[in-house]
Simulated assay, not measured.
Amino acid sequence: MDAVVKALSARVDAHDAGEKIVHRPTREEAEAAVRTLIAYAGDDPDREGLVETPKRVAKAYRELFGGYEEDAGTVLAKVFEDVEGYGDMVLVRDIPFHSHCEHHMVPFHGSAHIAYFPSKGVVGLSKLARVVDVFARRLQTQETMTQQIADAVEDALQPRGIAVLIEAEHMCMSMRGVRKSGSSTVTTVFTGIFREEPAEQARFFTQVRLGK
């Protein structure tokens, strides 16, 4: 197990233009940090209900932030070119996701909608959902995540246009700070046909709303 942890101890920071290497602490160090946070919150990390919590949190983090160990390019590597000349919009809507705000490390969750106009081919529809998870399972901002999804589709398919729309509720607004639950944030990225032709952008919005 230690060998696996060491093998995965470095990752590329997706927010830096350069490839900054971040070295991952050991599981024991992570558990010690959780104990410190429990004590900082005002509780006793040695009481019965919390004594196993550091181990559980460290394990959960490996799942919640598993996107650091995945590559969107690999997910989208398989392109199907034999689509009988199909060139109209491909839309996958209402892709659920949950992520964590990089500012307060509290969750935000919602739905992603991804559309593109094929050029050289298409990818399996489930692959677009997996790409959302690759970027959502990291410390994120919604704006960055929206752009990362669009860039990944662009790199894999070079389509004639991409549309990405994300709607999410942020717990950093509803649980703390202004404490306004139910508010949602919408971010979009449009390229190619979707940016140049307002009618296609409007059609995208219409198709997304049909699922509501």
Rank of each mutant, 00 (worst) to 15 (best):
R62K: 11
A115L: 04
T141L: 13
G110Q: 00
G192E: 07
V189D: 11
G110S: 00
K120R: 15
Q207G: 00
A202Y: 00
M105Q: 12
L157V: 01
V92P: 04
V186E: 02
T26L: 09
R35M: 06
A199M: 06
G67Q: 08
R27F: 11
P25S: 11
G211D: 03
E52T: 09
E19T: 12
M105Y: 15
Y86R: 09
Q201C: 08
G192K: 03
M171Y: 06
E196H: 14
E29W: 04
V164D: 11
P45V: 08
E52W: 02
L125Q: 02
I114E: 03
A7E: 14
V92R: 14
S126G: 13
T191F: 12
F97D: 00
T26W: 02
I38G: 04
P25A: 06
Y68A: 05
R138W: 11
G18E: 11
T26P: 07
K6S: 15
E48M: 01
D2T: 12
T36E: 15
R62M: 08
P25W: 03
A33L: 15
M175I: 08
R56H: 15
G182M: 10
D43P: 06
E81F: 01
V164M: 03
G42P: 05
T141G: 05
Y116T: 03
E31I: 08
S9W: 01
C172Q: 09
A136V: 01
G121L: 10
K59V: 02
T53D: 05
A156G: 01
G124P: 03
P159L: 05
F65R: 04
G85L: 08
D82S: 05
T36P: 04
K55R: 15
A60T: 09
Q207D: 13
I38S: 07
A10H: 14
T191L: 05
H23D: 07
D71P: 02
V4T: 11
M145F: 00
M105I: 09
P45L: 13
V92K: 10
H98S: 06
Y86G: 12
L125D: 14
H170M: 07
P54Y: 12
T144P: 01
G110E: 00
K59P: 02
A156L: 02
M105W: 15
A156H: 01
I21F: 04
M171P: 01
K55I: 07
V134H: 07
F194N: 06
V83S: 05
E28D: 15
L8R: 12
V123D: 00
V208Q: 12
